[in-house]
Each structure stands twice: as structure tokens, then as C-alpha cells.
Design a binder for these strands. Structure first.
Length: 481
RNA sequence: GGCGGCAUAGCCAAGUGGUAAGGCAGAGCUCUGCAAAAGCUCUAUUCCCCAGUUCAAAUCUGGGUGCCGCCUCCA
């Protein structure tokens, strides 16, 4: 098995090389000053799936994701609301983690914060000054972009083509307009820390270099984030990390595409965002994940209010299929190999292994989840065909258990697009009441009182309870998406 | 102005040299008391346009058009 990934640094797909099973991952987190929105859901879900896939393949992902909890925007908001910057950032960091939990995103192994890594940041800035990549002026420290020959290698920018200063004023203390702040001199009313250059706070990019280096060292495997971070954030990060250590920081730079709202990037500063919590109040997390994963992680994704409804039908089919399988194979834990399989059953097993192979091939090719999902639909069609004829023999149960186990790992554990909670859909009286209603309706049907039976069905549908008459009896389900 | 990306059926979307996955919607059929579910069949002679390379191109090259992102904080 070989995994190939698109590396922004080389602008092509590369074979993923590794030395041992532990895969180190640094994903740029958020600046917590506002509610967590759908744009944040994209990299989170994408990396969640990558981690779970890698683990399924026998790797041990180790994931570090920062909180940039010292920042102009946070300070501005704190001053406006009469709170401290840390109160603001803590509040929104909590909102972020809650949103991630609600999305079924596994937590990172570490969430380092700027405010807790001042020594590491200062040490790296100092190193950069010593290495001749940074200079201090009036309590500020700037990165000397011209000193780093490879500057621009990630984003493919040429220094002389960048339009710096066109939309904001350039600090007069800079050697060069493109130089960026590593350390900012304290202004009144701002949180500040002691440093060799006086009181101040870190610039935007240095925290990721310092913290990724501290926890993952140099040459770690993956560095991820949104494509909007390629320049200047990640470009500057490379300049800092490599300028300080003399070694490459990350080997593979992976960038996810933007999630747009009405053809515009969803972002905090533009105010055009939909929060994750809002969406999850109306839709199950599995549906939101299905939507996000239905396009390749590098492409742009368009969101609008009816978007989830559009993909819901296909998603629901998949879920009901898996749920039916779950009911069917429930309690069949002890099944071992069964000797006599019919042709139809052998065919299903062949399709199962083909589906798993296609899924793996898709994920190995730059984590192509959209293609991988296609293989789940292919298998579903095949199995549904078999299911129509299947009896409840041992062989049949055995085969269906194989199918279910595959969906459980791929669609459930890795992608998180089907709800496998075996929790009863209902509580209290609903279950026995439904059984009673359906029993009576079955009686009516056997008496050919279809008019009344249909009224019951219609009224139940209006209540959100969908019933289906199958040859194996009537089944019911609460429609909740 | 520079850099990066995208343009595939009514809609979403995969596909980076070998003759167009998958989903939704639509049509027909099977099953069914009916409905639903499910299955089967059909639905892009063609991949924004124009040239070129090649036995072969949605895929490569050149040019054009349109859209998006970045060059300010952003996932």
C-alpha cells in the first residue's frame, strides 16, 4: 500500500514516505475570537478522516493543533467587551472544541496555546536574530525576508511581485516592506510579556513555528490548514522554522479548499458565516460530514441553506441500509466461517472485498473521500439486490455480517457518515405504542380495510414516523434530519 | 499587476494519456392491496471555446473566455 498526497510545496502528488508507524501532524488551528463556523468544519473533518484512515491502516497519528490566543482581533474584542484577552480566547476556544465534539471530530493530542509558550517563542526569535534572519528595532523584531533565499517557495511568490503596502501602511522601521513582525512592542492596553527586546507580544506567524518545533521537531510529516494560509502564514512559517533550525519543518504541506457561502469565502471578518452549532441543531453530524466529504478536500465547496437537503436523500439511503443491516446482524457476534455458501453469497463476498479495495485505493490517492464514498454506494446496490432474496440462513447471516462490519469501519469509524449508535430511537412509551398501532394496522390490512390502514400511515407520516410494509412485516422509523 | 486553483449531464461530483465512477432529480419496468423501500433499464458520442502534440486527450502544450482564492486578519 502506498499513499500519495498532493504537496503544495512541490505542487504535485508525491508518494508518502515514512520511517515508522508514528505519523506527526500539525494542523493550523483557529484564532478564537468568534463563533466556530462551517469553514472551520472543513479542515477538521478532513483531518479527522485522514487520522482515522491512517490508524485503520496501522499507523499511529500524532496530532498537534494550536490556538492562537494572542492576537489583534482578540485584544480588540476584549477591549470592546471590557474583558481580558484571555477570557475572550478561552471562551471561543471552548466553543471550538464543543463544535468539534458535536461534529464527531476526534480531539487533537495537543492544543498548545501562544500564551503558554512565550519562552519557546522568544527562544526561536532569538535564534533567528542570531542567525541573521531577524533584526530588532525600537522594541519590535522583524523577520528579514531578504535573508532567506528560499522565501516564496511554498506560495511560488517572487518578492518583487508582491504588492505589499498597497492595502495597509508599512511600518517605517522595516528594512523591507515584506518583512513581518516576530515580536511586537507593547502598546498601552494590550497584554504584554517580558522579552530581551522589552515588553511585547509575538507576531502572528511565529507561534506555529515555535510550537510545531517544540512538539514535533523538524521534518515532521504533515502540515495542514486552509488554502488561505499558504501565503503569508505558511510561507512565513517556513522562513522562520528553517531560518531558526536550518532544517525543513514539515515534509508534506496539505491545504484544503475553502468553503464558500454565496460564492464568497466564509470568514469571520466578512461576517458571512454559519456556525457549526446552528447547522447541527437542524441536521445530524453525519449528514454534515457526508456533505463535506462528498467533494475532494482540495476543491472549493459551495454552501447554502438547501445544500444539506440536496445531499440528504442519498445520505439517508446509505444510513437506512446500514441500519437495516445492523438490525439484521445484531447479536451475531459468534459467527465464524461458514462452509457452504451459495453462488449469490460468494458473489457478495467478492463484492465486499472489491469495495474495500476500491475504498482503500481512493483514500490512498490523496485521501479522495468522495471517490471512496462511491465505492460504498456500489456495494450497497449489490447487497440490496442480494438482500431481496436472502433468507435468514447461517450462511446469509455470515455474509451480511461481513458487509456490516465493513460499513461499520469505513462509513462509521473512518468517515463518520453513518450513525451506528445502537441507541433506541425512542424513549419511554413510543416503542410499545408504535408496536400496538402497527399491530392493529396489520389486523386491518388482513381484513382488507385498506382505507383505514392508509389513513393511519398518512397520519403517522405527518407526525414524522415513516412506515414501510415489507414482506418481513412493517417497519417504522422516525425521520429526524 | 503577480501567484495558485477551478470550468465534466438539469444539479452535486470523481476521473491527470487508453475511450466518461458515484449521488440527487427525471422516465420506464419488477415487486406491492396501494404506498414506501429495494432492484433493473434508460438519461453527457462527450468533458467552457479555439488551435496543437499523439495511434489515442476530459486528461499534455499554446492561446482565449468565465469564476474563485491568496498577495491585509482568516481554516
Amino acid at each position: 500500500m502506498t499513499i500519495r498526497v498532493y504537496n503544495t510545496l512541490t505542487q504535485k502528488k508525491e508518494e508518502f514516505g515514512y520511517e515508522d508507524k508514528q505519523i506527526n501532524i500539525y494542523v493550523c488551528g483557529v484564532t478564537p475570537y468568534s463563533n466556530t463556523h462551517l469553514g472551520h468544519a472543513r479542515p477538521s473533518v478532513v483531518w479527522d478522516v485522514i487520522k482515522k484512515y491512517l490508524r485503520w491502516q496501522g499507523f499511529l497519528p500524532f496530532h498537534v493543533q494550536n490556538f492562537t490566543d494572542i492576537d489583534d482581533k482578540i485584544i480588540a474584542k476584549a477591549n470592546a467587551e471590557g474583558k481580558t484577552a484571555l477570557e475572550i480566547s478561552q471562551h471561543y476556544a471552548t466553543d471550538y472544541l464543543e463544535s468539534m465534539d458535536a461534529l464527531g471530530v476526534e480531539r487533537a493530542d495537543l492544543y498548545p496555546k501562544v500564551s503558554e509558550h512565550m519562552d519557546d517563542i522568544i527562544a526561536m526569535i532569538r535564534q533567528l536574530v542570531e542567525n541573521g534572519h531577524a533584526y530588532a528595532v525600537n522594541g519590535n523584531v522583524f523577520y528579514d525576508v531578504a535573508s532567506f533565499r528560499a522565501y516564496g517557495k511554498l506560495s511560488n511568490q517572487r518578492l518583487d511581485e508582491l504588492q505589499m503596502g498597497s492595502r495597509f501602511d508599512v511600518d517605517a522601521d522595516k528594512f523591507n516592506a515584506m518583512d513581518f513582525a516576530l515580536w511586537k512592542r507593547a502598546k498601552t492596553g494590550e497584554p504584554a510579556w517580558d522579552s530581551p527586546w522589552g515588553q511585547g507580544r509575538p507576531g502572528w506567524h511565529i507561534e506555529c513555528s515555535a510550537m510545531s518545533h517544540k512538539y514535533l521537531g523538524t521534518g515532521f510529516h504533515f502540515h495542514g490548514g486552509g488554502s488561505d494560509l499558504i501565503f503569508p502564514h505558511h510561507e512565513n512559517e517556513i522562513a522562520q522554522s528553517e531560518g531558526a533550525t536550518g532544517e525543513p519543518s514539515a515534509r508534506y504541506w496539505l491545504h484544503n479548499g475553502m468553503l464558500n457561502l454565496k460564492h464568497e469565502k466564509m470568514s469571520k471578518s466578512q461576517g458571512n458565516f454559519v456556525t457549526i452549532k446552528d447547522v447541527l441543531e437542524k441536521h445530524p453530524k453525519e449528514l454534515l460530514r457526508f456533505y463535506i466529504l462528498s467533494a475532494h478536500y482540495r476543491s472549493e465547496l459551495e454552501y447554502h441553506d438547501s445544500k444539506l437537503a440536496e445531499v440528504a436523500r442519498g445520505w439517508r439511503r446509505l444510513n437506512q441500509f446500514v441500519r437495516n443491516l445492523a438490525n439484521r446482524v445484531d447479536g451475531l457476534e459468534g459467527l465464524t466461517d461458514v462452509e457452504e455458501l451459495s453462488k449469490a453469497e460468494q458473489d457478495v463476498l467478492v463484492t465486499v472485498s472489491a469495495a474495500q479495495r476500491h475504498f482503500t485505493q481512493a483514500m490512498d490517492d490523496d485521501f479522495n473521500a468522495a471517490l471512496a464514498i462511491g465505492s460504498l454506494f456500489d456495494l450497497m446496490r449489490e447487497v440490496n439486490g442480494y438482500l431481496a432474496e436472502a433468507d435468514s440462513s447461517l450462511a446469509s447471516n455470515y455474509v451480511l455480517k461481513q458487509v456490516f462490519d465493513l460499513y461499520k469501519s469505513l462509513a462509521g469509524d473512518i468517515l463518520g457518515i453513518v450513525d451506528l449508535d445502537t441507541k433506541p430511537q425512542t424513549e419511554g412509551l413510543t416503542q410499545p405504542l408504535m408496536e400496538l398501532v402497527l399491530e392493529l394496522r396489520t389486523q386491518l390490512r388482513s381484513e382488507q380495510n385498506y382505507a383505514l390502514a392508509d389513513i393511519i400511515r398518512t397520519r403517522l407520516t405527518e407526525l414524522g414516523v415513516v412506515i414501510e410494509d415489507t414482506s418481513a412485516g412493517t417497519r417504522w422509523q422516525i425521520q429526524n434530519d
